[in-house]
Nucleic acid binder design. Sequence first.
RNA 1: GUGGGUAUAGCUCAGUUGGUUAGAGCGCUAGAUUGUGGUUCUAGAGGUCGCCGGUUCAAUUCCGGUUACUCACCCCA
Length: 443
Amino acid sequence: MKPSIPQGTRDFSPEQVNKRNYIFSTLRKVFVKYGYQPIETPTMEKLSTLTGKYGEEGDRLLFKVLNSGDFLKKATALDNAKKLTTQICDKGLRYDLTVPFARYVVMHKNDITFPFKRYQIQPVWRGDRPQRGRYREFYQCDVDVVGTNSLLNEVELTQIYDEGFARLGVNVTIKISNRKILAGIAEVAGISDQFMAMTIAIDKLDKIGIEGVRKEMLGHAISEESVAKVEAILQAKNLDNLKPLLADSEVGTKGCEELSTVFNYLDKVELTNKVIFDITLARGLTYYTGTIFEVSANDAKMGSIGGGGRYDDLTGIFGMKDVPGVGVSFGADRIYDVMEELKLFPDTSADSIQVILLAFDQESHDYAFGALQKLRKAAINAELYPEPVKFKKQMKYANARKAPFIIIVGEQERTSGLLTFKDMQSGEQQKLDIESIITSIKS
RNA sequence: GUGGGUAUAGCUCAGUUGGUUAGAGCGCUAGAUUGUGGUUCUAGAGGUCGCCGGUUCAAUUCCGGUUACUCACCCCA
């Protein structure tokens, strides 16, 4: 049997894990710096927690987990796959980190001091067809704060995006908009009931052009007149132009005000990356109600590598009213792909092996074992080739491991106490006692 | 969920207008060099040509189906 892994999943080599950990630890430092605390939630959630939170498409992409035991006992809808699913599955794999977080907040409300700032770095699963930059299992790095309406949080999250990507060396554009503006556009155009269809169409503007957007909206039975209104509003290049167009909409005006506030704050902070208002920004997830964020890499062809937004009442569905929240997510796997493409990873060899000991015979091997203890005691990453096998094989191993140094122990060395210390890059070698070697490696 | 592409050695791929023994590079093993890797040279191991069926004297090659992978759409990190 030829072994394989499920579609859209991947194995990671030592080098890849080191690089991934570099992303995680870099972001973690930023999150902690801004006062966020870590939590983790289970891989599986109750299906009742997950369904209905991500829109129709989201429900379709949820991985469901078959009940244990005789799951057919409760099954009656044998001719209806959708209904049957609800009868034989009551768990599902986590689809994002925001909904589980909302559930967490409600369950632990008595232990939490609000506002509660948390970060969470864990994998999520989506049953999408895999393609470039899209996986069925991928990591998100989320930062959210709940229990505060202050738009200062939006500013802080923008800074976290900015600093996070700056530290990783990825040039990005941080796009910001507000769902209330989209709601305002729908209201002014008289299509509030078609809000989602309009939003999804607008989201594609830069991809399919204004004509494509028009076609898509007309396809959703939106009237020619409404489409024309939407089009006219989309011409507004900036907030100042937009405000008068949405003057008749209370919610739209509110959206403009919120956005202005955020940008006014942002004017006062130092940023590395470009932060822009993008009216075409929409975000598919249904639970966003205010500010929305999206991040794209400037120098690589990749979809969004981060996204987020404000949700006024995500905890409401779990029975806890009036706990607004806002958060953003870093898409670690896409960031990895971008960094790989642009060769932005620093050399991670400092975290790996520093010296490997090789021995010619059993007695020398025993002697080398003693030296190995001294090296490790001095906090040097060291290993001894486990058997004194053919020397060429050991050398090849040391070379393949990319060890910067090796120590060779044979009869001469163990009798003199002076070990052969070789720099693998230059090929130079000298005879030194173990203390001198330790000093030499550490310098 | 919809549409396209691909499937040959461990990896990346060539090739066979249907015909005897299916190739290269890299990797692997051994030797040149019994105390020295990364360079070089020599030799060797490794393939039911994805799977099932059809056409044919003959199929890895042509046709149909199937599975897997992959790219794009939808949607999204």
